[in-house]
C-alpha cells in the first residue's frame, strides 16, 4: 500500500472532478455508512472510508455471482466430484464482515506513511464518488449506494480500465482484501487448506 503517490494527480481529471464535486448535487450523495464491529475503534479510516472499504470487500469476496461476474465465471473444468466438494466448502466460507476484514485492514494500514495514506484515502473518495461513477459510465450513485451488480460492474471497469491508474486502484483494494481474508484461519476450511502442520513441527521439537 505504499505506492500510489500522486494517484489522483495522474488520474484523468481526478482532482478537477473532486473539486467540482463540491459544487454539484451529485456530490451530495453520501457514502452509505456501515456499523463498525463491536469494540472496534478506527485507527486509519474515517467512518466513510471504512464503509467504502467494507462495501468493496463484500463484492471482492462475495460468494454468489451477479450477472457481471457470472459471465466471467470460467471455472476450470474438473471432475464433477471435485467441483461438488469445492462448492460445498465454498458455502462454509465466512463473510468479510464475519472476520472483521475491514477492521483488520484499518489496523494494518494505520502505520502507513503520510503520502501513501493520502493517496489511498483519495482513491477511496474517488471510488465512492457519484460524479466519477457517472462520468465513467456508471450509475449516478456512490459505490456504497449501488446495487450488487452495479458494484461488480464498477469493480470490473476499474480492473480492466484503459486508464492504468484505475487498474492500480483496483489492485490496491483487491490485494489487501484477499491478503486479509485468505490470511485469516477462519477461512481455511472453505478452500480445503488444512492449515500449518503443527504436529509435525512439535514432533521434532520435543
Amino acid at each position: 500500500m505504499t505506492s500510489r503517490r500522486g494517484l489522483l494527480k495522474k488520474t484523468l481529471g481526478g482532482a478537477v472532478l473532486l473539486a467540482a464535486a463540491g459544487a454539484v448535487p451529485l456530490a451530495l450523495r453520501k457514502t452509505r455508512l456501515r456499523a463498525l464491529a463491536p469494540g472496534r475503534a478506527l485507527l486509519f479510516f474515517t467512518p466513510a472510508e471504512y464503509s467504502v472499504w467494507a462495501a468493496v470487500a463484500d463484492r471482492i469476496l462475495d460468494r454468489n455471482a451477479t450477472y457481471i461476474t457470472q459471465e466471467h465465471n470460467d471455472g476450470p473444468p474438473l471432475p464433477a466430484a471435485v467441483l461438488v466438494e469445492a462448492a460445498e466448502k465454498r458455502k462454509t466460507a465466512p463473510t468479510p464482515v464475519a472476520i472483521d476484514l475491514t477492521g483488520k485492514a484499518d489496523a494494518f494500514l494505520a502505520p502507513l506513511d503520510a503520502a501513501s495514506a493520502k493517496d489511498l484515502k483519495q482513491l477511496l473518495a474517488l471510488f465512492d464518488s457519484a460524479l466519477f461513477s457517472l462520468v465513467t459510465g456508471g450509475p449516478p450513485r456512490p459505490f456504497t449506494q449501488q446495487e450488487p451488480a452495479e458494484q461488480d460492474a464498477q469493480l470490473k471497469a476499474w480492473q480492466t480500465s484503459r486508464l492504468a491508474i484505475r487498474r492500480t486502484g483496483y489492485q490496491a483494494m483487491k490485494r489487501l482484501c484477499c491478503a486479509i481474508y485468505y490470511g485469516s484461519p477462519e477461512t481455511y476450511a472453505s478452500i480445503g487448506y488444512p492449515g500449518p502442520p503443527y504436529d509435525l513441527v512439535k514432533s521434532v521439537m520435543k
Binding site: 462475495d62 461476474t69 471455472g75 484477499c178 491478503a179
Partner: peptide, 26 residues
Amino acid sequence: THPMITGIAMPGFGAPLRSRMALLPH
C-alpha cells in the same frame, strides 16, 4: 500455494475468485 499469496495473485473477484480458491488443494 499458501492461501494468502495465492489469493493475492488469483485473478478476478467474487464468485469466480471463490471458485478457483476453493480448488486450492488441486
